[in-house]
């Protein structure tokens, strides 16, 4: 089935550059500001957008994204409102792929079939569900793949050659390599780890490879796309959202521009980086 994700990685390959994937949490810090951030991301140079589905207990996330989840929930975020943000985004952008990232429980509550129908309906292209490993594929992965939704898997430094085939068995879209063992936004990814991991992963899969967790600066992102097909930046963007909110929860008028300016810097660095011969 045709997918915005596949088309985007094909066009990146054709233009011989790596891509920038940006992450924000839906409805953070409030629904309207989140919509402005989301709709400005592609203009600022994001090639693919990961949109976090707020959850009360984000176990794989560090302090920055935990706080973003709580801000979003305090602003009244629900899964329906996250889907509605995507629907509004699609009114102005029918090209930039959107991947929802989060934890399974809100989807389980919403109902898997209803969720897949509604998510496809508003223009979601893929899913990354942190707490659904291949061992639980029957829950969501298999129905998602059957519906034409891309189901993106995380590979980590602990995913060895013996386990990789399991991780790659039911997946498509791209492979997301987690460059550190740890939670989001803590350590920095090292060039050595990224280079050797991408080389190893390419022996197992022809899928595009994105690298995230520990990619914080334009320099990090540039380093990543020398080897991988895309760099994912999350916590560093979310930190700039947090920096634009004062102690009373007031959003600074310059916050959206600051965040999008940072995305622009990331995109410029990624676009200026020549690809290693694959």
């Amino acid at each position: 089935m045709d997918s915005r994700i596949d088309r985007r990685f094909e066009s990146l390959r054709a233009s011989r550059r790596g891509g920038l994937v940006t992450f924000i949490t839906a409805c953070d810090p409030d629904i309207e500001t989140s919509f402005k951030l989301l709709s400005g991301m592609a203009q600022a140079g994001a090639d693919l957008i990961e949109l976090g589905m707020p959850f009360s207990d984000p176990m794989a996330d560090g302090p920055s994204i935990q706080a973003a989840n709580l801000r979003a929930l305090a602003a009244g975020a629900t899964l329906s409102k996250t889907l509605d943000l995507v629907r509004r985004f699609r009114e102005g952008d029918n090209e930039t792929p959107i991947v929802l990232m989060g934890y399974f429980n809100p989807i389980h509550t919403y109902g898997v079939d209803r969720f897949l129908r509604d998510a496809k309906g508003v223009g979601v292209d893929g899913l990354i569900i942190v707490d659904l490993p291949p061992e639980e594929d029957r829950e969501l992965c298999l129905p998602a793949l059957a519906s034409g939704m891309r189901f993106i898997r995380l590979a980590t430094p602990t995913t060895d050659d013996a386990r990789l085939p399991t991780v790659l068995a039911n997946t498509n879209g791209f492979l997301y390599f987690v460059a550190i063992t740890g939670i989001t936004g803590t350590r920095s990814a090292s060039e050595e780890v990224v280079a050797s991991a991408v080389t190893r992963l390419r022996r197992h899969t022809a899928l595009p490879i994105a690298v995230g967790f520990g990619v914080k600066t334009p320099e990090n992102a540039s380093m990543v796309v020398r080897f991988a097909d895309a760099a994912v930046v999350g916590s560093a963007i979310v930190d700039r959202i947090a920096a634009g909110i004062d102690a009373e929860g007031q959003v600074a008028p310059t916050m959206v521009d600051d965040v999008l300016g940072f995305v622009r810097q990331l995109a410029d660095a990624v676009r200026a980086t020549p690809r290693q011969a694959a």
Binding site: D131, P133, E136, L154, T159, V178
Partner: peptide, 19 residues
Amino acid sequence: DGHFGQYGGRYVAETLMPL
């Protein structure tokens, strides 16, 4: 697979799965 009826299982991040 660690299921008691529909309950139980292994709903963890991939980093933890090998462990």
